[in-house]
Nucleic acid binder design. Structure first.
Length: 190
DNA sequence: AGGAAGATCTACT
DNA sequence: GTAGATCTTCCTA
């Protein structure tokens, strides 16, 4: 147990995306804690990846992907905030998109942020979970490697099978399958 | 200043 | 399964 350190994120995005499955994402809101198990992720690379925000090279809006691993990288798509953690080997470029959570703590607050009938719809999608956890661009660049942060990730271990597929919603994908999820988990987005 | 795209979501058929 | 909503950011002029 404990907070995942920078070294965890200083590896190939695919390895980080796989290893983030089953870990606990914590959103601290003053006294309150919202928490969920990461059940679905996607890996994104640098300029060589046509679906990546870094595809067209270093720009002001994507500079975090080129920077220190273990920081949040947040951007907007269709009026939804996407939560990524910068992850890559030293000198490389990349990030991991958190696509779905299984809610564990602060579920009432999450429901207030994002009213739903079925609990499985609360955080099962990249735009859904940021709304439920009150995450927006104001957290861009925040390190996730300290418990003092407003967002961090706790180590956790349990047994599950990892499923794999192509990334969702991207216009031009790589040949490699870079989406990972916990098989059979009802909170996976699809 | 304006247009278009986008790692989405919801509602409806 | 498909259409439309919605808004941030980028790109061009």
């Amino acid at each position: 147990m404990g907070v995942l350190s920078r070294e965890f994120y200083e590896r190939d995005p695919e390895a980080v995306a796989k290893d983030l499955l089953g870990k606990r994402l914590v959103r601290r809101l003053g006294d309150e804690v919202l928490e969920g198990v990461i059940v679905e992720t996607e890996a994104y690379y640098g300029p060589e990846d046509p679906a990546s925000r870094a595809h067209r090279g270093l720009k002001p809006h994507n500079r975090l992907m080129f920077g220190e691993p273990g920081r949040l990288f947040i951007y907007n798509v269709h009026n939804n905030w996407m939560l990524n953690i910068v992850a890559h080997a030293p000198g490389d470029v990349g990030a991991v998109l958190i696509r779905a959570l299984e809610p564990k703590k602060g579920i009432e607050t999450m429901k207030r942020n994002r009213p739903v009938n079925e609990i499985t719809k609360l955080t099962s999608g990249p735009g859904r979970l940021t709304k439920a956890l009150m995450i927006d661009k104001s957290l861009n660049g925040v390190p996730v490697t300290s418990e003092r942060s407003e967002v961090y990730v706790l180590d956790d271990g349990s047994d599950f099978e990892i499923g794999r597929s192509h990334r969702i919603g991207v216009k031009a994908d790589l040949e490699r399958e870079l989406r990972f999820f916990i098989k059979g988990n009802p909170f996976v987005s699809r």
